[in-house]
């Protein structure tokens, strides 16, 4: 474990806490893409298949459980919670995310570390996570003004993989045979997808204005 990875995991946890706060405090999920939340639930379920078989540390296991449970709880909440589901922007959240699942799985069948179920699902989860934010970014552009908590949620979600990139660079230089090319390249793509969001988020912070993404 290094400081970059810890910072990344804490930022990722922060994004989930901010989203939970928004949904429970405001009893609303307006501006949140259910499709992105469903994609994240698939990412964690596909990546943590080793939850019950491999034990690295208490921290690793606890965080995996937190990510799986929180992502499923958010999807459940947005689908079935009486008050919250009414605030879901159904007509704006129209990204065809099934293509992202299909494309990521096909890519995992081609590029993986080993042709085993575990490794193919792991690569699938890495590729899917890289594009999982797309429905959310599209929804933000369509819904015009973005409330603070939603903006912070997306910001932390984008920042966490940026810390992971620093972690991979650090491990590359400090560990002999460290070659996480699948995760590193995918992580770069993932962080790059947030570039324009980060730009407008920074502008709104600098001008102390409401975050608005150009349609």
């Amino acid at each position: 474990m290094n400081i970059f990875r810890l910072a990344g995991d804490m930022t990722h946890l922060m994004s989930i806490l901010v989203l939970l706060l928004k949904i429970y405090a405001t009893k609303s999920c307006s501006g949140i893409s259910l499709k992105t939340q469903e994609l994240y639930a698939v990412v964690f379920l596909a990546r943590y298949l080793d939850l019950l078989t491999d034990f690295f540390s208490l921290y690793n296991t606890v965080m995996k459980v937190v990510f799986i449970v929180s992502s499923l709880a958010i999807v459940w909440c947005m689908r079935y919670h009486r008050a919250v589901r009414r605030t879901y922007d159904r007509e704006l959240d129209t990204f065809r995310h099934y293509f992202l699942i299909l494309g990521s799985f096909v890519l995992a069948l081609i590029f993986h570390e080993k042709f085993t179920v575990r490794e193919i699902f792991w690569a699938f989860s890495i590729y899917l996570e890289a594009v999982a934010i797309l429905p959310q970014l599209v929804l933000l552009q369509r819904s015009g003004n973005v409330d603070n908590l939603t903006g912070q949620y997306v910001f932390f979600l984008g920042a966490y993989r940026g810390f992971y990139i620093l972690n991979w660079i650090y491990r590359y230089f400090t560990e002999a045979h460290f070659g996480r090319w699948i995760a590193s390249i995918s992580g770069l793509v993932q962080t790059a997808l947030y570039a324009d969001f980060f730009y407008y988020y920074f502008l709104s912070w600098k001008n102390n204005a409401k975050l608005k993404l150009p349609a």
């Binding site: 995991d9 491999d54 995996k64």
Partner: peptide, 10 residues
């Protein structure tokens, strides 16, 4: 088990 095949990151 070889280290690199196991994914120790979240």
């Amino acid at each position: 088990v070889q280290k690199e095949s196991l994914h120790d990151e979240l």
